[in-house]
């Protein structure tokens, strides 16, 4: 079997992630795809900590730690600097879901509309995990967090950030999952080939916040994709393409592995299943529709 994942490790030992951290795997794969000629801009998120305290950094690329809502805008500045210096260095904005869906959405929308040349990767662990599991607009319906206690669980659906980015008509938008590293790496490499703002949202489960056994991160990640809850797809210049078509697991199977959903009743779970089926159907139709317009 031919190994398609680059062997070079640009994330070193001694990082400060929790056991089973999806976010640290996501970074490891992302850097394998991007290579050494990369500058990372990281706002407040788990990775502000994972990278290591001063004077250490576990990444073998330069890192600029920036304020919470400025991943995209600070990266735009770095990107402009690379352009004026005539450098081809990739500028990576690397933010969590809170920094992307919530507080950083304005700066990201601005950069995307202008077409600033950055790769923006949101590692999505579906809540403010670094501050101790508070709900974000990426938190799915039904989930417990410390600010959405089980008795009053999150009643709003997860914001569809991917579609918001697609609506900016940027050249490339994709979802990914750490359980599918070849797909994730392929997408990052593809993103690198486009000028402008590229957005990749990678599901990065958090055992601490989702309340599951850290050994199950990959299994659970796979289930998120297989159940259609976190479909893998890409939108290249407006053309949708689903990366993994099989949908052979249920919402119930996925959520029963996680303490954050343990309070949910059968009725609520049925409702969630209906919504997932509907969204999946919609995605298939989008693929058909846009695929058709392409021809």
């Amino acid at each position: 079997m031919k190994l398609t994942i680059p062997g070079e490790e640009l994330m070193g030992h001694g990082n400060l992630s929790c056991q089973g951290c999806g976010g640290s795997l996501a970074m490891r794969y992302a850097l394998k795809a991007l290579g050494r000629d990369t500058i990372a801009v990281i706002p407040a998120c788990c990775w502000s900590i994972i990278d290591g305290p001063f004077p250490y950094s576990c990444l073998k690329i330069p890192v600029f730690h920036t304020a919470f809502e400025t991943a995209a805008s600070a990266a735009s500045g770095v990107s402009a600097a690379m352009k004026i210096k005539g450098k081809k260095t990739t500028v990576l904005a690397w933010a969590g879901d809170g920094g992307t869906f919530d507080i950083g959405i304005q700066a990201l929308s601005g950069a995307a509309e202008r077409g600033d040349n950055i790769i923006y990767i949101c590692y999505d662990n579906e809540a403010y995990m670094n501050t101790g599991i508070q709900r974000s607009s990426a938190t799915p319906y039904g989930a417990w967090t410390t600010t959405t206690p089980a008795k009053k669980f999150k009643s709003a659906p997860k914001k569809n950030m991917v579609e918001i980015m697609v609506a900016h008509k940027i050249p490339y938008t994709a979802t990914a999952c750490i359980a599918y590293p070849e797909d994730f790496i392929k997408k990052i490499k593809k993103a690198k080939g486009f000028q402008g703002t590229k957005y990749i949202q990678v599901l990065a489960p958090c055992p601490t916040g989702w309340r599951y056994d850290p050994a199950k991160t990959i299994e659970l990640s796979k289930m998120a994709v297989e159940s259609g809850i976190y479909p893998l797809y890409e939108v290249e210049n407006g053309i949708y393409k689903i990366s993994r078509k099989a949908k052979n697991k249920t919402v119930k199977e996925y959520i029963k592995m996680q303490g954050r959903f343990s309070h949910l009743t059968g009725e609520v779970i049925d409702e969630m299943q209906k919504n997932v089926d509907k969204e999946w159907e919609l995605l298939i139709r989008k693929e058909e529709f846009y695929g058709h317009t392409k021809e």
Binding site: S48, I49, D51, Y56, L59, I61, P62, V63, F64, H65
Partner: peptide, 9 residues
Amino acid sequence: THAFGGLTT
């Protein structure tokens, strides 16, 4: 490969 502005105790 410096990190700028990382967590400082």
